[in-house]
Design a protein around this nucleic acid. Structure first.
Lengths: 337, 337
DNA sequence: TAGTCTTGCGCAAACGATTGCGCAAGGTAT
DNA sequence: ATACCTTGCGCAATCGTTTGCGCAAGACTA
């Protein structure tokens, strides 16, 4: 049963039913009696305005797109969960897109989402600022916000981690534990996120009067295979750092895999601070010292920003960057200074 | 620019443009010259039929709903990824719903999805067959298939693991390695999936002339906290099994947490076979012996089934259950018999 | 008693695409 | 020259909802 049929049954016009169900009864001066009749009948027949008909008229679909580089990455899964819940509370639904860390797929998915006339796009980009990416997001006539691997140059509202601070925290912790030779496994070299983490790390190194040695820094993409290769390369040199920072979740896996391959023991031979807290971080051997992101907050903030954009409300600020949290466990060994 | 405007620019009717863009040019005898003109102009202006207008007319939304109990569970994330990719290849998109392992939330999300007039629903239920669940899925006037925690009584097409076989594999492996006292951490006691895994395990125990001791079987829900409690209870008894099978992914985490808490060492004090291969399974200490599900296959099969249902094609069979794979690593110790 | 307000709600035109039916123009057959 | 067929495409209704405008009826004022 749809709105029109319900109206016929009640002997009122579809307009009236629509206004009642949309909560505009007062605005159109529908009498209390009529409102109640309509509401009762709507409940009884489980009638709710068809989103398609409604969308055609209003231009709203009640859906937002969420584009992530990899939904199997627990960070993005957590973000998806938080966003889905937050938007559901507003009666909106989330369309999932997964670009598989591939820029070309990313454009394609974005185009599909744009064609679908979603109300807005929450994009966690692969991280590279290509001309094609810029073109496709700029021609989208809908609100867009960026999360996690933001690209500030594009001028979209952003939600993410205070990455420089997070990088700094990792290094400061290692320095406190007596480490002086610190290595870094970068993730997705071209991304703003990675550059910021490195910037913070470099500052902390400087503050501690330590040198960041290029042979102790290894770049890689964000995929698991790339991370493994980079970690292998960094750790199989004759001279190794005494500690390493995995600057991404996949990087953590890459280091664990390489360490396994090379027979290196953590933390006896190598200390490690790992980005991204995961469900298993605390229960593996050794329990991992991690940098944890407030992923639920990020989802809620992203939803709030998007909600304002959709409803034409002013944004307080163009972005929000939350602090990370260091969780010290046993993958960092205290060494003598 | 939409279809109507493009038609105006070309001096043809919207009908003609629609027929060309929908690939129905031949059926309506549109001349080759006109087809080419339309196609060229559509490409030039990037015109594609508006899914809302089209949906209103055709009744199709080009979207399927995916409802999972927990997108942060890597198994469901993998399923989501596989499904998203498979459906995208058909030009369809996936709406994500996360019930957070809560039956009530599950009904609500289902209702929302049904109201949205999606083309179909891929449901990984929380696993409990409640009257409310039955009511809501039965009143849905759209194709539904169940994945993973299927509920066979409801008669929907199903895709999942051959769970009995998987349970059997776990036990047979432990028996081969000399274990005779085997414990089980069940996951979501009421689910068909869990019962099947236990059934297979029990059969294998019987075949090996071993007794399944009730004090070595601990039930729990599917959440992490429940799994931890159950594992703690099972493992803190004075007499412990020499090996344990975690019958769910969260159960694996629960056991690892409990073992950590109790100071039990794997595999020295306790051997373990863990359900659900995860990215980190091979790189933790000790590398975990796992039962791996072919999650990508499951996604593709689910999409195929759904595709047939949507297009009114006959289903070969009402369900497909794939074999699991045992990945022997170092969490199972060989013991003397 | 006529004019003005207020209350309560319907009319009809969108929104954008799809599709059965049929018309017109040109060709072919008789 | 008439009848019939083929080719090519447009007409108009339809899907379900929303919303500006205005109508009708009763209440109130002068």
């Amino acid at each position: 049963m749809n709105v029109t049929e319900l109206a016929a049954e009640l002997g009122v016009s579809p307009s009236t039913v629509s206004r009642v169900l949309r909560g505009n009864a007062a605005k159109y001066r529908i009498s209390k009696a009529t409102v109640e009749r309509v509401e009762e009948a709507a409940k009884r027949h489980q009638v709710t305005p068809d989103p398609i008909g409604s969308g055609l008229q209003s231009g709203r679909t009640g859906m937002v797109g969420l584009l992530v580089p990899d939904i199997t990455n627990p960070f993005f899964a957590g973000l998806a969960r938080s966003l889905e819940l937050s938007f559901r509370e507003e009666g909106m639904t989330v369309q999932l897109g997964d670009s598989a860390e591939d820029p070309v797929t990313e454009w394609e998915v974005l185009r599909q989402m744009i064609n679908r006339r979603l109300d807005g796009l929450v994009v966690a980009p692969v991280g590279r600022n290509s001309p094609e990416f810029v073109e496709v997001v700029n021609e989208a006539k809908m609100p867009i916000i960026m999360v996690d691997r933001v690209i500030p140059e594009l001028g979209f509202p952003m939600v993410g981690l205070d990455n420089a601070e997070a990088g700094r925290m990792a290094v400061e912790h290692l320095v406190e534990m007596g480490h002086r030779e610190i290595g870094f496994l970068r993730g997705g070299n071209d991304s703003f996120t990675d550059r910021e983490r490195m910037r913070g790390a470099a500052e902390a190194m400087g503050d501690a009067k330590l040198q960041m040695k290029t042979e102790f820094v290894s770049g890689s993409g964000y995929t698991r295979a790339e991370s493994f290769d980079a970690a292998l390369q960094l750790l199989s040199r004759p001279k190794r750092p005494s500690a390493i920072v995995a600057l991404s979740g996949q990087g953590t896996l890459g280091i664990l895999e390489a360490v396994n391959e090379l027979g290196i023991s953590i933390p006896a031979d190598l200390s490690m601070v790992a980005f991204d807290e995961q469900p298993w971080s605390a229960f593996v051997s050794p329990p991992l010292t991690t940098i944890s992101q407030p992923v639920e907050d990020l989802g809620r903030i992203a939803k709030d920003l998007m909600w304002r954009l959709i409803n034409g409300q002013p944004l307080g600020k163009m972005g929000e960057f939350r602090k990370a949290e260091l969780r010290p466990r046993n993958s960092v060994r205290r060494v003598d200074v």
